[in-house]
Design a protein around this nucleic acid. Structure first.
Lengths: 213, 213
DNA sequence: TCATCCAGTGGACCGGTGGTGCAGTAGATC
DNA sequence: GATCTACTGCACCACCGGTCCACTGGATGA
């Protein structure tokens, strides 16, 4: 049915991913049926299985795309933070990054779409080695990058508080995921930005001490 | 079949809840079938639906029981923290509580069974007003209790860092849930205790400053 | 112009799962 | 002896993920 295909670059596969992602974040994976997704996209069941051999391959595609765009988002924030820190102090840079992150999160639509990794993590059997590996690699990547930054910062600003810098790196991802759950459960959209701000205060205090707060 | 019923006080209903809880935390809700649960308990399908009108009512029962025992666990830790703090300083008390909490978490079985609220939260449609309400009430309860404690502490120890005490209260639950996700995903069991310890350092610094660290 | 490939369609079918309906029953309680 | 609780057994349903198979309209390339 290529005559129905829009001129845009968005392929049927992309549309399946988009529609499914919205539905899954809204209702959960189990409550999102393939039939429902294909109905909205306007494709047959076999059309779906032409693109994905499995429901879990669809999830894999969603997760991959989400993590990729998250990567881009964070990279953009880091870039903005860096260009806004002419002196090149790594601490100022990360504090600016965290401020920008918080501001972005304040502008997010109601509550928050929800953390895909969590949605996957708690679904059936973490359900494939592959999906689990993608999520794991992403989280370990953030840990390594933030940890490296904190090590750089510690060289310039010796910590005033005894903390494990790797745990401090993990804290941002933990806090974010947890805050999304809390936000979804109590239905308050400002939970996430508030937690990021608190984390920012913590980072600031660790490297500058509580005197200059 | 009451002749099969063990003399213990554990009813068939309790056993259904126990068996289902283990399976769900291990594999996820969708991957846990009713037939599998009743096979292990040794009951018929109608026997199951005699106790629970729904699969989601089973989840409700699991959630309720989990939250109740969590309540007891925390209450016990608070009691131990209080008896170990003869001077009655609320800060020392909460710092001791957090240390005990961390120690308990270090002793938890591999990785962590997983956060029920999260498992529910991301499952089908947060799936009932009732289940959602139970989770929400629990989280708001912890927020209120920790916030009240921090307010008491702030009276004795004026904060050295500018933080929102309610957000600081939320931070513990957020961090815990997020750390469980991280822990499950990267398969490192020490993520959770390390995050709790980090939180403890933060709380300490907020109320005592970085000088005495 | 013809062959081939891509991106599907349509329909039959399968097994598992959640869930319902109904009739019956062993044992404890009143 | 009547009633209640806690089931059993069987039949049955709809939905859902997934498979198989035959077919096709349009684009591409030789």
């Amino acid at each position: 049915m290529s005559f129905m295909k829009p001129r845009s670059t968005e392929t049927t596969r992309d549309r399946l991913v988009t529609v499914a992602e919205v539905a899954i974040l809204d209702k959960g994976l189990a409550a999102t049926s393939i039939e429902e997704v294909i109905a909205e996209v306007g494709i047959s069941k076999n059309g779906f299985f032409y693109h994905f051999k499995d429901k879990s391959e669809l999830v894999k595609a969603i997760l991959q795309r989400t993590l990729d765009s998250e990567e881009l988002w964070f990279a953009g924030l880091f870039e903005r933070a860096r260009s806004g820190t002419p002196d090149g102090d790594p601490l100022t840079e990360i504090l600016t990054f965290l401020r920008l992150l918080r501001e972005d999160m304040e502008r997010l639509p109601d509550v928050h779409p929800g953390c895909l990794i969590a949605a996957c993590c708690f679904q059936e059997r973490l359900f494939q080695h592959e999906i689990h590996a993608i999520a794991k690699a992403s989280l370990l990547g953030w840990r390594a990058r933030f940890h490296a930054r904190f090590v750089e910062i510690a060289k310039v600003h010796p910590p005033h508080v005894e903390v494990d810098l790797e745990a401090l790196a993990d804290m941002l991802t933990s806090l974010t995921d947890g805050a999304i759950i809390l936000s979804k459960t109590v239905r308050e959209k400002d939970v996430l930005p508030r937690q990021i701000e608190l984390y920012r205060q913590f980072v600031k205090t660790v490297f500058l001490g509580s005197g200059q707060g």
